[in-house]
């Protein structure tokens, strides 16, 4: 049988041009990671960029670990596969660090953004996490205080905006006001905007 050997270490993917940004999301079912991955894609669209957002489909159980992906680029994206070497890793539930290798394939300078009450130094010590440039944000608490629900996805997008510089924060707020405004009452919209802006301010770096 001819099995073409799989290389141990794959080279970084391209196919979306020089400015391709690849984000991998780790979360548990129910935390809104897929919605966040889509939100970033739509923000990219608003900035005239190209985008892709997709979950790794699996059993849809609340609480089960899930992975989702977002690609953003200045050029059309024609690569169609999961992201193996993410420049950005977003973890919506810190307990996943103990359960899965969230840094798998990520380069040493990857941005790693974790939803946690801990500081980056505390988080590293607690989980024995090595590698990446670590940022933390208490996204679940911020969500509880602003949206009144423990869904950390919107605050994570606020923190992501800060640590990556992918989009100006004003554009994110503008987007939320418009898109959420079509679907939700003003109170919910303002709660989400507050979640985004607070996370933008409160994200902690090393």
């Amino acid at each position: 049988m001819n099995v073409v050997p799989n290389p141990d270490r794959m080279p970084p993917a391209s196919g979306g041009g020089e400015n391709l940004t690849e984000i991998r999301w780790h979360a548990r079912g129910g935390q809104g990671a897929v919605t966040a991955a889509k939100m970033v894609a739509e923000l990219a669209l608003g900035q005239g960029k190209y985008f892709q957002a997709f979950p790794e489909y699996g059993p849809e159980r609340s609480g089960a670990p899930i992975v989702a992906f977002t690609r953003v680029s200045d050029e059309p994206i024609q690569i169609y596969c999961g992201i193996e070497h993410p420049a950005i890793v977003v973890v919506l539930d810190a307990s996943l660090i103990a359960a899965t290798d969230v840094l798998k394939g990520a380069p040493d300078d990857a941005i790693v953004l974790v939803n946690s009450e801990m500081s980056p130094a505390q988080l590293r010590e607690h989980y024995g996490l090595a590698g990446g440039r670590l940022f933390t944000i208490a996204a679940t608490r911020i969500a509880m205080e602003t949206i009144k629900r423990p869904i950390p996805n919107t605050p994570m997008v606020g923190a992501l905006t800060r640590v990556t510089g992918l989009f100006p924060i004003e554009k994110v707020v503008e987007f939320l006001r418009y898109e959420f405004g079509k679907k939700f009452p003003p109170k919910v919209v303002e709660g989400n905007i507050s979640a985004i802006t607070r996370s933008y301010e409160e994200v902690q770096s090393e």
Binding site: V4, P5, P7, P11, E84
Partner: peptide, 13 residues
């Protein structure tokens, strides 16, 4: 069955 296909696999081909 949805087995992913990465650029590297194609490069190997």
């Amino acid at each position: 069955g949805g087995r992913d296909i990465f650029p590297d696999n194609i490069e190997q081909a």
